[in-house]
Nucleic acid binder design. Structure first.
Lengths: 131, 131
DNA sequence: AGTGTCCGATTACAGGCGTAAACTGTTTGC
DNA sequence: GCAAACAGTTTACGCCTGTAATCGGACACT
């Protein structure tokens, strides 16, 4: 599922607080982004049409629920980003992001732990090709 | 400078081997991507028009040279990626990428060193930003 | 019951993108 | 010198995007 910029904004909101009604989305995004009602409605409709959202009719209103997992979309977008900007090579991408990002100490610690984990698992079982 | 997918492909090639003539780009990208000559020409033209490339006429041919720094485009694309997918928060982006990326031991080491550097510089010049 | 209101659906429209053919002018081989 | 090759410019076209107005049906209030 490829999402456009604007669609990401909508989906991020819905992933955070699904199921959601259109009015909530309209309120939130109108305030945050200055989109008109009509624009948000269009977004919702397109997302339903492309299968990223489902609607269930509760009484007379509809509730919107994500039909695609956020993690899957994130994975896809990340790969696409690394592919296009770094030619598919994740390491320079990471280096770049670390260099430019503002990271809290907690973030740094967490990242280091993750790297340690990766290094260890590599050392112990370095024949598992399970990705 | 915002580059589209296809434009990234062209620009990455040119950054790697500038200055370049159209024929080289056509040859490389025709082979790699199966693009027709016409398509590559269009890309080059559009990139010139949007200011990402410059042409200098050497004799009768033109040579294409990047007019924007790769690093600047990378920075912009990275920010845009983090913004759209992770709501501007770099830390989850990094965690995700580290989790899913295949990283060599060299990559891992390099990353850890970079993290250490960041942590140290933060500790030494910490002036109580409490956020 | 009529009218305003809310909400989803349909329609609109300009600009970007991927893809490419056609046109034009120059160079070069025959 | 003329035709083929080459290179840059113009034009084309359908789809996606961002942005939005308008339509149409159901409810709600007067």
């Amino acid at each position: 599922m490829q999402l456009s910029d604007a669609e990401w904004i909508v989906m991020n909101l819905i992933w955070d607080s699904q199921p959601t009604e259109a009015s909530d989305v309209i309120a939130a995004l109108g305030a945050d982004n200055g989109w008109s009602d009509a624009t948000v409605k269009t977004m919702l409709h397109r997302l339903v049409k492309k299968g990223a959202l489902t609607t269930e009719q509760i009484g007379k209103k509809y509730r919107y629920t994500a039909a695609v997992r956020q993690s899957a979309c994130v994975r896809k977008a990340s790969r696409s980003f690394v592919d296009r900007v770094f030619g598919g090579d994740a390491a320079p991408a990471l280096l770049h992001l670390v260099k430019t990002a503002k990271l809290s100490e907690v973030d740094l610690t967490e990242l280091r732990e993750l790297l340690d984990t990766k290094a260890n698992s590599r050392n112990s079982k370095n024949k598992g090709s399970k990705e």
